[in-house]
Design a protein around this nucleic acid. Structure first.
Length: 277
DNA sequence: ACCCTCACCTGCACGC
DNA sequence: TGCGTGCAGGTGAGGG
């Protein structure tokens, strides 16, 4: 479900709640959540580790621990974190539980069972396969117009699919792809090599813009004592999308109906008039 | 090396 | 009310 901005907001919440706290014990209740490791080893590697900080790389959430290990998690479609008091019951699909102390525990729940966890050595964290191949962070200098132009111009795939490729552009998912292409006026069916240089430059900016809009909305959200036990993913703000999910509704720019098409099995929403090129 | 299709799951909204 | 269908914000493995 979540794309970069939603993951970033989750990370900010986790960072207000967790650094300095210790995972007294950890339970991997659904072994396939962490397929590289046994539940026993999962528990051993995390037990009595103090959380130093929580970071994000692409859509991955990284818990930096004081035992020189990092817990890598990916929410995929439906993964969520919850911080629960001892008297609160586990939700359905609680696939991993981190007992912080007698009072509170962090629960990872995941209805669709797509989420993933790994425990790796912190030393080579960014060389681990999952992270090493990711494209530059969208808000970093590395995500330059030159970079995006180089990537797009050599591609034979359509621009929509390219935007979803985390090794080319990271953090963009199905919603932000549609949104960014709408802002930049780019036709989602265009092959990469056929997208003009000005349009690519516009895309670089619009990717940042649509992500920043959500981050601004999420800025004021605090998970604290008042709403502890809240679903931390629920911390993501409600956003009014420009085109996503608006099939048949008028384009905000020209008034013509937004259309929905399917590209490699996934919905794309766009305006045929404003995104002709 | 690249690209596509499928697979991994549950739940919800919809039409009959 | 119940059942079938299609859809959901992600990605990797496997095949061409």
């Amino acid at each position: 479900m979540p794309e970069l901005p939603e993951v970033e907001i989750v990370v900010r919440c986790l960072n207000r709640l967790l650094p300095g706290r210790t995972i007294a014990s950890a339970e991997l209740r659904r072994p396939r959540l962490a397929p590289d490791i046994t539940p026993r080893s999962f528990a051993t590697r995390l037990r009595n580790s103090r959380i130093l900080s929580v970071q994000r790389r692409g859509k991955f959430i990284l818990f930096d621990l004081d035992n020189h290990r990092t817990l890598i998690t990916h929410l995929r479609m439906s993964g969520r974190f919850m911080l629960l008091d001892h008297d609160q019951e586990d939700p359905k699909f609680a696939h991993a539980v981190f007992n912080l102390d007698d009072e509170e525990r962090l629960v990872f729940r995941d209805q669709r069972h797509f989420g993933l966890m790994k425990v790796v050595d912190s030393k080579n964290l960014f060389e681990t396969k999952d992270l090493a191949k990711l494209a530059p962070e969208p808000f970093s200098d590395g995500f330059s117009i030159q970079y995006l132009t180089d990537v797009v111009k050599v591609s034979k795939r359509n621009i929509k699919q390219l935007l979803l490729d985390q090794t080319k552009v990271c953090g963009v998912g199905n919603i932000y792809a549609s949104e960014a292409m709408f802002i930049a006026g780019v036709n989602p069916r265009k092959f990469g090599y056929a997208v003009s240089r000005p349009k690519i430059a516009g895309l670089r900016d619009s990717i940042r813009q649509v992500m920043d809009e959500t981050l601004q909305l999420g800025k004021d959200i605090e998970i604290n004592r008042e709403n502890i036990g809240a679903d931390i993913y629920g911390a993501a703000p409600d956003v009014d999308w420009h085109v996503y999910g608006r099939e048949g509704k008028p384009c905000q720019r020209c008034g013509k109906p937004i259309v929905r098409i399917v590209q490699s099995g996934r919905s794309t929403y766009f305006c045929r008039t404003c995104q002709r090129k």
